[in-house]
């Protein structure tokens, strides 16, 4: 092939997203008539998940398909754009915002100084929340020991009254099982179900409400700039195709897993009521505002995303007023 690249993902090879990313690479090869050949490697194969940004910049990797939240420590905007907690209730809205609402432009403004170019954004779908205690309301989150990784999740749940615990992913399974933590910000429902997490975290919240990680498909900036227009178009189009396919396939998998879980009398799948979701979003919105103050890009993103959500009537008026008040009394209590 004219171009031979290695891209690292943020999943292990067993996860369905990994297979979808491999299919994307195959698709690119077909569409480019063999001019581009991309090898997809699982998480940690070359460098740790939070080191791929530097690896792509320095040319060790040519690109990555990853959750930008891993790079929050280099610029908070990565965490904010990568996973705006509580903002999205439908992944298609997020994709629309990235493609047509100005999201990708802002992301590239952020990423290009770091030597990478965003080809396009995808999303994994809304993560469920495995919990060993029933959560029917924001009130029920009081004192909940919840594992939260890097990014915004920790602060938002803290504001919602929960007690976040900072544990690495590899400790989640045993810590939930033994009761060290009550709940975890972890991954999508189907994966939790297949790992047997729901046997003890038997009050999973589904559909999710808190976390929608972006999958940033990026390439080394110099390579991107040197590509002819037709190959650029092939890459962009193929990422968009993957993004829509990914959302659909993951949802199908989740729904199958939910059906399976419902058959088990010990597992109680909880759907957080709309008014509670609104309360949670109101709390999250305040955190967005705090993050907006961090730098120019976070401010620009905040303005852009809030105006998109408002224009599309996704921050319903009744959410704002009463829920805001409710939230402030909650967080004071």
């Amino acid at each position: 092939a004219e171009y031979e690249w290695t891209f690292q993902t943020s999943e292990t090879a067993g996860e369905p997203q990994f297979e979808m990313k491999e299919q994307w690479a195959e698709n690119v090869e077909k569409m480019s008539d063999g001019r581009i050949s991309i090898e997809i490697l699982p998480v940690g194969a070359v460098v740790q998940a939070n080191q791929t940004l530097q690896a792509v910049k320095s040319g060790i990797l040519q690109g990555h398909l990853t959750d930008p939240s891993y790079f929050t420590g280099q610029n908070p905007a990565f965490g904010m754009i990568g996973n705006l907690v509580g903002a999205w209730s439908d992944p298609y809205n997020f994709l629309d915002y990235m493609n047509n609402g100005g999201g990708e432009e802002i992301y590239n403004k952020l990423a290009e100084p770091y030597g990478v170019h965003l080809i396009g954004a995808a999303a994994t779908g809304l993560e469920s929340l495995p919990s060993s205690k029933p959560i029917h309301s924001v009130e029920d989150m009081q004192g909940l020991k919840l594992r939260a990784p890097e990014g915004m999740v920790y602060n938002v749940f803290e504001k919602a009254g929960a007690t976040p615990v900072n544990l690495p992913g590899s400790e989640v399974y045993t810590s939930l099982e033994k009761g060290v933590i009550d709940a975890a910000d972890y991954t999508v429902f189907a994966t939790n179900q297949s790992q047997g997490l729901h046997e003890f975290a038997n009050y999973p919240l589904y559909p999710g409400f808190h976390s929608l990680p972006m999958v940033a498909v990026s390439i080394n900036n110099e390579i991107w700039n040197s590509l002819p227009g037709d190959l650029k178009a092939i890459l962009s189009t193929s990422v968009d195709a993957m993004a829509y396919k990914m959302v659909g396939q993951l949802k199908t998998r989740d729904l199958e897993a939910v059906r399976e879980a419902r058959k088990d009398p010990n597992i109680h799948v909880i759907d957080l009521p709309a008014e509670e979701r609104a309360k949670f979003r109101a709390i999250a919105k305040k955190e967005w505002k705090d993050w907006a103050d961090k730098n120019e890009i976070t401010q620009e993103f905040y303005n852009s995303v809030v105006s998109y959500l408002e224009n599309h009537n996704l921050l319903k008026a009744e959410d704002g007023g009463s829920a805001d008040q409710q939230a402030s009394t909650d967080s004071q209590s």
């Binding site: 939070n50 530097q54 320095s58 891993y70 929050t72 420590g73 280099q74 990014g151 976040p164 900072n166």
Partner: peptide, 29 residues
Amino acid sequence: FTMSWTATHNPMGEWDLERSGTSWNPPFP
């Protein structure tokens, strides 16, 4: 040295420590 340089400078070459990205966000990396 290359790794440490990247971790202590932002893309513009200014002094800027790589942080962990958590809520506490220390410059441990």
